[in-house]
Amino acid sequence: MIIVGNVYLSDDIAEQYFVCELSACKGACCVEGDAGAPLEEAECETIAQLLPTVRPYLSQEALEVIEAQGTHTIDQEGDLSTPILPTGECVYAFRDEKGQLKCAFEQAYYEGKSDFKKPVSCHLYPIRITRYDEFDAVNYHRWEICKPACAHGSALRVPLYRFLKEPLIRKYGKRWYDELCRIIELQFGVSHTEDSGQKTSQS
């Protein structure tokens, strides 16, 4: 286990290699599963405010679900999440010309229409955070659909915490992330110095 402040991380975050391979999975994490993306309370307000911005990317079916359920919902475990279509697809996902699922919020972000990239839970995937009263538990979510990402990350030698550098800093801050890197280097006895050519953040 790796402990940084009040965050407890599984060793997988240092030991596993991972780089998303969208050409292989087609964004399946936006479809698979039994609930939408987990949301933080503050994100619900942001998503509601951005609905007019992302509306052009969404299908009519998605808009009808949002009209009926709202811009966010409560999942079976009582947590805030994005609504989903009957097929399981997140209402904020859309398919591009290659058939890959993309996030409407991320598309708007890259087009300079907002400064909200996407829900932080999506940004952090494939790790999931479980909140307790006194600490956060950070664990790697293993999923069959991510096998190509594991193979790609292994080929590039990009450990999970390096791939997730941007969202981890977004979640916990730069100072926290620097301390994570320092502890991993000491605890595992290796240096994961980033090569300039490595892809270490999600697209």
Rank of each mutant, 00 (worst) to 15 (best):
M1G: 07
I3Q: 11
G5V: 04
N6E: 15
Y8H: 07
L9C: 09
D12K: 14
Y17Q: 14
F18L: 06
C20P: 07
K26G: 05
A28D: 13
C29M: 06
C29E: 08
E41P: 02
E43V: 12
E45Q: 11
T46K: 12
A48D: 12
L51V: 13
T53M: 03
Q60K: 04
Q60T: 05
I66D: 01
E77F: 13
E77K: 07
G78K: 07
D79A: 10
I84K: 05
V91T: 12
K102P: 02
A108S: 09
A108T: 13
Y109G: 00
E111M: 08
S114P: 01
P119T: 11
C122S: 01
P126I: 06
Y132F: 14
E134S: 01
N139L: 08
I145L: 15
P148H: 08
C150Y: 14
A151G: 04
R157F: 15
P167R: 00
P167F: 04
K171M: 00
Y172M: 04
G173M: 12
G173E: 13
Y177N: 03
R182A: 00
R182F: 04
F188N: 01
V190I: 15
S191D: 15
H192F: 08
G197Q: 09
T200G: 10
S201I: 00
Q202S: 09
S203A: 12
